[in-house]
């Protein structure tokens, strides 16, 4: 009987920890909300609408389907541009990481490209592709590309030679090394790049939508701005942050289940 109680309390404590963690994370949000509400009492509504005005805007936008439409539009864009970036950046990063000559040749270009933000490309991209999905995809692609590429390169270059030696002396041929050693060993770094790339892509996309689109959460904010509907601007900002949070959370969960073998991640 005693050990049953102990087992049970262990489960409860574990759950408690999660709940506690969640509650702690909630505190700043509550403070922010209270502060916002207090300040909004003293300001004109067009400068800072009160939280309940924004909630009204939310419910209206949800009912009309406007919010969903823009959110879906943004999600479709990010999925396309981001996946395309992964598709090019990861193989290219592996190639540069493995092949010294490719590194020597491409590294200066890569390092330079890294410092050109997607937003700087918007004018020329719009010139070439016009306003719409194509332009947004290219801009998102650019945002995600560099961080994924650079992390992949450093992941591949950082593969411990002892893992390669282990594989070779246990019968691996050259052709096995890529899938059996290089990629799994570089995966934690690739994941770091993918997460970073996702947040960059998300920002690039919002910028693109604000400047070169007729749909999406970025466009929603610009549209509201032109109509002086500050509460809808804030609604857009909150939605952007919230979806970003959801994306990152799902990303982390995927990462954690794929990288169980890493000490730090399991113990956390």
């Amino acid at each position: 009987m005693e050990h049953v109680t102990i087992g049970l309390s262990a489960i409860i404590t574990k759950d408690n920890k999660l709940i506690k963690k969640f509650l702690y994370g909630l505190i700043p949000f509550i403070l922010l909300l209270v502060g916002w509400w207090a300040i909004s009492l003293r300001l004109e509504s067009y400068l800072l609408p009160s939280p309940d005005t924004v909630i009204d805007a939310f419910s209206k936008a949800i009912c009309t389907g406007e919010l969903l439409r823009h959110t879906v539009s943004s999600m479709v864009k990010i999925a396309g541009g981001y996946l395309l970036a992964l598709l090019f950046a990861i193989p290219l990063g592996i190639m540069i990481g493995l092949w010294q000559r490719a590194h020597d040749m491409l590294n200066p270009l890569v390092q330079m490209a890294r410092f050109v933000p997607s937003i700087a490309l918007i004018p020329i991209i719009v010139l070439w592709f016009g306003i719409g999905y194509q332009a947004a995809t290219v801009i998102i692609f650019w945002g995600a590309f560099s961080p994924v590429l650079i992390s992949t390169i450093s992941g591949v270059e950082g593969v411990e030679i002892e893992y390669v030696d282990f594989a070779l002396t246990h019968g691996a041929q050259r052709r096995h090394l890529l899938t059996k050693v290089i990629i799994p060993a570089a995966l934690p770094d690739i994941f770091v790049g993918m997460r970073l790339g996702l947040s960059y892509a998300w920002r690039a996309m919002i910028a693109a939508e604000m400047l070169a689109s007729k749909f999406g959460l970025g466009y929603l904010i610009m549209d509201a701005r032109w109509l002086m509907q500050t509460e809808r601007v804030i609604m857009g900002i909150i939605t952007i942050g919230f979806i970003g949070l959801l994306l990152d959370f799902s990303f982390r969960s995927a990462e954690e289940s794929m990288l169980k073998w890493r000490k730090g991640m399991v113990l956390k």
């Binding site: 002892e162 893992y163 030696d165 282990f166 594989a167 070779l168 002396t169 246990h170 019968g171 059996k180 050693v181 799994p184 060993a185 995966l187 990288l259 073998w261 890493r262």
Partner: peptide, 27 residues
């Protein structure tokens, strides 16, 4: 290199992303 001359290294290298049994059955 080949599995006919298998080497156990100083640090008892195993592939860290594989479980113990996956390491043992690697060859």
């Amino acid at each position: 290199p080949g599995p006919d001359r298998c080497m156990v290294s100083q640090m008892a290298t195993l592939l860290p992303w594989r479980t113990v049994i996956q390491n043992v059955e690697f060859s």
